[in-house]
């Protein structure tokens, strides 16, 4: 088997509190293979976003990663990177699309300037070359290169989200982390964007860590899924097994509480 792109071992994260620490992530271990679409699901407060932030070292106090935790990306120890290494590591190795990514663009810069920001910080690239590359990336997400001179407020929410994804792909990262990337979008736009990501990762070969509370969507798009409950990873399996023959009682309960779109309806009072 090829080496995993992301390997997490015994990850423990606490939120330090005045009276008591909150153990947000409890001894979590999992791998993501090259080109794999991995879904991390769970309800609010289960620790899934905390893991995403830790992988890109974006966690801030009071979040504290405990000793003995290990996060490897392409074999490199992420937790041991110094500031310089970390700067090179972000965007190039791991890029992250945040929950409200459509609001993470700078409102006073044109789309072109925002591409240039990322490209110039990581590569020796001229303004003209950056412009060409940005136009290519926009075409990839089905946005006309005319938009390079637009400001974020001139683009729709779905468009802004696709622009953020294009910027994330600018340096060919090995791993794309998406934390609820489409929660604020319509189902039709959501479907378009995720379908596109699915095509890209097959063409470009990057892996995806996809975080959402929408289990149905996750089963549709992911290869493998991890289910989190109160900081613990309670079940990891391929997507179809998680759906058809879940092993953990919590996973079963989640499915039992989700109304179905077709076929036999779930029974009332499965859990109320």
């Amino acid at each position: 088997m090829t080496d995993p792109v992301l390997s997490i071992r015994n990850l423990n994260i606490d939120y330090i509190g005045a009276e008591k620490d909150f153990h947000a992530v409890k001894d979590v271990s999992f791998d993501i293979a090259p080109g794999e679409f991995f879904g991390l699901a769970g309800e609010s407060g289960c620790g899934k976003s905390t893991i995403a932030f830790a992988v890109s070292r974006l966690h801030r106090p009071p979040a504290l990663i405990r000793k003995g935790s290990q996060i490897l990306v392409g074999g490199r120890d992420v937790l041991a990177l110094d500031d310089n290494e970390l700067r090179r590591f972000r965007w190039r190795e791991v890029a992250m699309v945040f929950q409200s990514a459509m609001n993470s663009l700078n409102p006073v810069l044109t789309i072109e300037a925002q591409f240039y920001d990322v490209l110039k910080a990581h590569t020796r690239i001229s303004r003209a070359e950056a412009r060409t590359r940005a136009a290519e990336l926009l075409k990839l997400v089905d946005i006309s290169p005319d938009r390079l001179s637009s400001y974020p407020h001139q683009c729709s929410g779905g468009m802004r989200q696709r622009i953020v994804i294009a910027i994330c792909l600018a340096l060919n990262p090995k791993l794309l982390i998406m934390d609820e990337p489409t929660t604020a979008l319509d189902v039709v736009v959501q479907r378009e964007i995720l379908q596109r990501i699915d095509v890209f990762r097959k063409e470009l070969g990057f892996s995806v860590l996809f975080i959402t509370h929408d289990l149905g969507l996750m089963v549709q798009v992911s290869d493998r899924i991890g289910i989190m409950l109160e900081g613990e990873l309670v079940e990891v399996n391929d997507a179809q097994t998680i759906y058809r023959t879940p092993q953990h009682a919590y996973t079963k309960r989640l499915w039992a509480s989700m109304p179905k779109l077709h076929g036999e309806q779930i029974r009332e009072g499965a859990k109320s």
Partner: peptide, 11 residues
């Protein structure tokens, strides 16, 4: 309906 998340239908 084709865009709605549905675990019974892979992408």
């Amino acid at each position: 309906l084709s865009a709605v998340p549905d675990p019974d239908r892979r992408f």
